[in-house]
């Protein structure tokens, strides 16, 4: 059967070829005219669907859904399985939207604690990792001692992640809080969550911290930090000279470097198309819960 079909198709092909040949001979039009028409027809079909702006916005809310851009480590099936596992975990625990600079309270199961749970409050100073490896670091000062705890975002021992204050800071990472005065990273453990009205953009806290005098853990003066106010006080002449020497102002024009560091928009829109619906549903259920909470909260105050 298949052979017969092939044969007929072959004959058809030959016939078409002959007809085209004849036309070419007969017609006065140049060959290109036909081709250009075809191209015009094809273009709209071949164009990729324009990514929805709202969908692409989720790359800021859920940055860990984008894979590591290193091409040596990428594999579409693994990324798909990983995303499915992330959504499975998200269906069990509400992982809220938060950023570097937000203040979080994390409750985990701890076999060594007396109540078998531990709660830690702190400011998120770093957020990194892709997929199930995503992690964040909380910092607080407890009894005049700086404490940092690193959590895996998808660790099944995490019972609850609560955002006490949702805000951003001026920098991508707040590692300089380690060398700043302790009041900038001190937060009480009994903080009340601040609820933002719905639809407001995430506020940016323009606070600039004061650094302690040297020695520092890193050369902060070379990192072009916006959230530090007194960095010039602690610098000597040689530090300023070396900072100038180490500057790489050309890097912002290095398009290839930028491309290698990021996931292209075509890949992103595919990823978000896959997970956006489920994430949206999770977000809706979270909003419902939040509304319930706001209605129940005033009652004891009245009574």
């Amino acid at each position: 059967m298949a052979l017969a079909i092939r044969r007929t198709s072959d004959i058809l092909c030959a016939a078409r070829w002959l007809i085209r040949r004849d036309c070419r001979v007969l017609s006065t039009l140049p060959e290109k005219a036909e081709i250009s028409q075809e191209v015009v027809v094809r273009r709209p079909a071949g164009r990729r669907p324009i990514a929805n702006e709202a969908v692409l916005e989720s790359r800021h809310i859920y940055p860990e859904f984008l894979p590591d851009p290193n091409p040596d480590w990428r594999n579409s099936l693994r990324e798909k399985l990983e995303r499915a596992d992330m959504l499975k975990r998200r269906s069990q625990i509400d992982i809220p939207e938060f950023y570097v600079g937000s203040i979080l309270a994390v409750t985990i199961s701890d076999p060594h604690a007396q109540t078998k749970t531990t709660r830690f409050v702190g400011i998120c100073i770093e957020r990194k990792g892709c997929g199930l490896r995503a992690e964040f670091t909380l910092r607080n000062v407890v009894d005049h001692q700086g404490v940092e705890v690193r959590y895996d975002l998808y660790d099944p021992t995490i019972q609850k992640i609560q955002v006490l204050r949702l805000e951003k800071r001026l920098d991508e990472k707040l590692l300089y809080l380690r060398d700043a005065l302790p009041e900038y990273s001190t937060f009480p453990f009994d903080m009340d969550p601040e609820i933002l009205p719905e639809g407001t953009p995430v506020p940016i806290n323009p606070v600039q911290v004061k650094l302690k005098p040297r020695p520092w853990l890193e050369k902060w003066e070379r990192q072009e930090l916006k959230g530090v106010s007194n960095i010039e006080e602690h610098l000597k002449g040689k530090d300023r000279i070396r900072r100038e020497l180490r500057k790489t102002p050309w890097e912002k024009y290095d398009l290839m470097k930028q491309y290698r560091k990021t996931i292209p928009i075509e890949d992103q829109s595919e990823i978000w198309a896959e997970v956006h619906n489920q994430l949206q549903q999770l977000q809706l259920s979270r909003k419902k819960m939040a509304r319930k909470r706001t209605f129940t909260a005033p009652k004891p105050q009245l009574g």
Binding site: K88, Q92, I93, S109, P111, K116, T157, Q159
Partner: peptide
């Protein structure tokens, strides 16, 4: 192994 869609791990007292 803890499947990802199982509830959170807790330790009994």
């Amino acid at each position: 192994i803890h499947p990802y869609d199982n509830p959170t791990v807790t330790y009994e007292e």
